[in-house]
Amino acid sequence: MPLSFQHINHSFGSKTVLHDVSLDVADGERVGILGPSGGGKTTLLNIAAGLLRPDSGEVQSSYDRVSFVFQEYRLLPWLTAAENITAAAGCSRETALALLNALELGGEEDSYPDSLSGGMQQRVNIARALAYSSDMVLMDEPFKGLDEELRGRVIGQVDTYLDGRTLLLVTHDRRECEWLKCTKIIEFDE
């Protein structure tokens, strides 16, 4: 399997967030991860991204390039929306503009993050992840804060731009997994 977690355990201090988690992900597979807040979903994504090493267990990943839609946007405040995408994804300005247009941010390419609403910053965050030529996309509650109608349209664009890449989607809303055609859904307990 290109991505495999075997018997993963992880704790922060005395709080155990991942207990004996095993998951195999096939190439191009879309996996939805559901569960309550603080249930370890983000921790699992961080492990998949290589940002965190589990306390125990084995992680195997053949993915060299991974993009991440972070929950807290993580945009550079001194760069415009388009520059945030080109700098991180290493893509052309044209690609960045096409993605911004697709995510209904046309005309905001030269806006700085602090002049954009939370929902707009989140879409720049999504555009950056999609612009990066990765093998796997990790999304941590990517549609939070978007109104129902916009969310539907953004999910449609994400579906198109994922283009066969593996997806790990963390969400609270099972419908998002369905809309993004997740073939595997795992649910974390309290």
Binding site: L51, R65, S67, L76, A87, A88
Partner: peptide, 20 residues
């Protein structure tokens, strides 16, 4: 958190210095 973003997107050392 920005340094983590740089790590995920494999930005070069030069970019890390100049952009972050």
């Amino acid at each position: 958190k920005l340094l983590e973003m740089v790590a995920v997107y494999r930005m070069s050392r030069l970019q890390k210095v100049s952009k972050i």
